[in-house]
Design a protein around this nucleic acid. Sequence first.
DNA 1: TAAGAGTCGGTAAAAAAATACCGATTAGAA
DNA 2: TTCTAATCGGTATTTTTTTACCGACTCTTA
Lengths: 214, 214
Amino acid sequence: MKAQLSKNQIRRLPDYLTYLLKKEDEKVEFISTLQIANDLSLNSEQVKKDMQAISTSSGIPNKGREVKKIIKDIQNILGYNENHKAILVGCGSLGKALLNHNGFKDYNLEIVAAFDNNKELIGKTINNIPIYNIDDLKEKRRSHDASIGIICVPSNQAQGVAIRLVASGIEAIWNFAPINLDVNDDVIVSNMNMAQSLASLAHRLYIKKNNIKE
Amino acid sequence: MKAQLSKNQIRRLPDYLTYLLKKEDEKVEFISTLQIANDLSLNSEQVKKDMQAISTSSGIPNKGREVKKIIKDIQNILGYNENHKAILVGCGSLGKALLNHNGFKDYNLEIVAAFDNNKELIGKTINNIPIYNIDDLKEKRRSHDASIGIICVPSNQAQGVAIRLVASGIEAIWNFAPINLDVNDDVIVSNMNMAQSLASLAHRLYIKKNNIKE
DNA sequence: TAAGAGTCGGTAAAAAAATACCGATTAGAA
DNA sequence: TTCTAATCGGTATTTTTTTACCGACTCTTA
């Protein structure tokens, strides 16, 4: 068993993956860590370390690593080899956007059902995904055999939805509400926090405008 | 001038901020680092360090810190005190969702204009935000005096849009396309990467399902 | 077939981040 | 008014992450 990857390393994996998939598309067979680093604007030693950490095979001196193999290793680590089914709660503007987003299949993630409490939406479909009454969460979660719950409701409802998702037997929650969810430790929570990346931008903009030395 | 905050610390600030704004709303005047840590599921020493790093004032033993003061300090660090104007390029499902999202004003971010190359959208408005022809980017950027550009176009168009944004005089880019943008160093880029947070979730789910010891 | 450049793997050093500890201080209860 | 528990500020330690270095190997090309 290879050493565990750090959180930061996990975060970098999808960047490597999209990059390498593009390279594969361009019929590139081998690639060096240095080139990856240059193209992704990363430190080359860091990329080398990352590649060593995720690789199940060796690189070839003066040639690099096999693109296909790295891709396979990353996909394996991220569990993108097996299909994940998800249900989405909250069909507001963000929820709708996610339902219409077809890019998730690159990650083998499939949204199989959506939920809302708005009577006008219930019974309809968005992008062929059925919208159910939130009260049927447990039953529909079961019948669709979904393991991931996506929370797209306003902050003040998020915790309540989280509790219902856990009760319905969900294993992981992808939370788009800007709030810390309190759930049992055996449920995986990953927060999609727009405020975080906006904060990074705003802070750097502030530093730039005020000419603060960094 | 106080010491610079680390990237991770900057990332945590918005979490503190939303949390503290809620507390302020609940008329809480003072709060201890320990309570913040408990409520946000963070290590208390880490929170203490963070608070010391951002605070311009002292805490009071056996009482804690003044909620209003911490909020002010964070907002100041993140530059949320002054208004930021942004333009958005790409009015697909994600772009539309962002245009309809009214939560940005909490961060003093205002989307003042949108752009697309779809003739059917040009001239219309979404959530009172006008949609212009992408060819008018430079002129409209100027007239609206926007400093931030939000990229919501597909990956293969993102780099091109980035170049046009920079040429139009933008200072910072908030990039929602899953690709590494190559722009001049004096332009700030912050990536909003859904794949990253999904990767974290997928990886942990994989570990859980395969009973790998962590 | 030999020289040379590029890249690797592994280890070592440096830097950054997280965590722990401890004496000092203060609010609030007895 | 005194005692106690909570919390602070500051410093020290540990852990993690990043970056640097170096000898070895293999592809390329002259």
